[in-house]
Design a protein around this nucleic acid. Structure first.
Length: 151
DNA sequence: CACATTTGACCAAG
DNA sequence: CTTGGTCAAATGTG
C-alpha cells in the first residue's frame, strides 16, 4: 500500500525460515534532506498476496509526499486538505457501504494501517489549528471533499 | 544523460 | 562461524 512517501529500495535478503525475501527501503530524500525513515517489507506466509511493512524512524517535515490537494469554501472558511491520493483511493468504502460521518472516523475506520500518517497529514494542515477541529466536519463536507478529489 | 533497482559483497553482532 | 542489514557497482529505464 502506498502511504504517499517516496522510497528507494536498497536491499533484498533471504531470511532464515522464511519462504520469501525481505525488502529494504529508505526515504528517497535521505541524502538531500538527511531523512532517516526506513521500512522493511515481508510477504506474508499465509497469504502471499499480502505484505507486512515495518517502519523505522520518522520522515523529515520537508519530505515531499505524493499529495492530492483540494480547496473548498464552507461557512466562509477556506479548507485545504492534503492526502496521499493512492492512500485515499485504497481506503474508500466499498460499493454500498456508508460514507463515514467525519474525517476522523474516515481515517480511523478505513485507514487502519495508515491511521497515524493520515491523521498527521490532515491535522498538520495549516487550515486546522487542532485535530479537534476536524470533528466539526460533517458528512456533507466529506462528500464535498470526495467530489473535489474524484469529480 | 539522470536517475532507480538489482544483487553479491561487505560488515557488525551473536 | 551464521545471520540480518547495508553498500555499491553493474544494470535497467526513460
Amino acid at each position: 500500500m502506498d502511504e504517499g512517501y517516496a522510497w528507494r529500495k536498497y536491499g533484498e535478503k533471504s531470511i532464515q525460515d522464511r519462504k520469501n525475501p525481505r525488502f529494504y527501503f529508505r526515504c528517497a530524500y535521505r541524502d538531500e534532506l538527511g531523512c532517516g525513515a526506513r521500512k522493511q517489507v515481508d510477504r506474508m506466509e499465509d497469504d502471499p498476496s499480502l505484505f507486512h511493512t515495518t517502519y523505522f524512524g520518522e520522515h523529515t517535515p520537508a519530505c515531499p509526499r505524493d499529495a492530492a490537494v483540494a480547496d473548498l469554501d464552507r461557512d466562509g472558511r477556506r479548507f485545504v486538505v492534503q492526502a496521499s491520493i493512492d492512500s485515499f483511493r485504497a481506503c474508500l468504502p466499498a460499493e454500498g457501504e456508508e460514507m463515514p460521518a467525519s474525517m476522523v472516523e474516515f481515517t480511523a475506520g478505513y485507514c487502519w494501517p495508515l491511521k497515524d500518517q493520515m491523521a498527521n497529514l490532515v491535522s498538520s494542515d495549516v487550515s486546522f489549528a487542532t485535530p479537534g477541529e476536524l470533528e466539526s466536519l460533517d458528512a456533507i463536507s466529506m462528500e464535498e471533499l470526495m467530489d473535489l478529489l474524484w469529480p
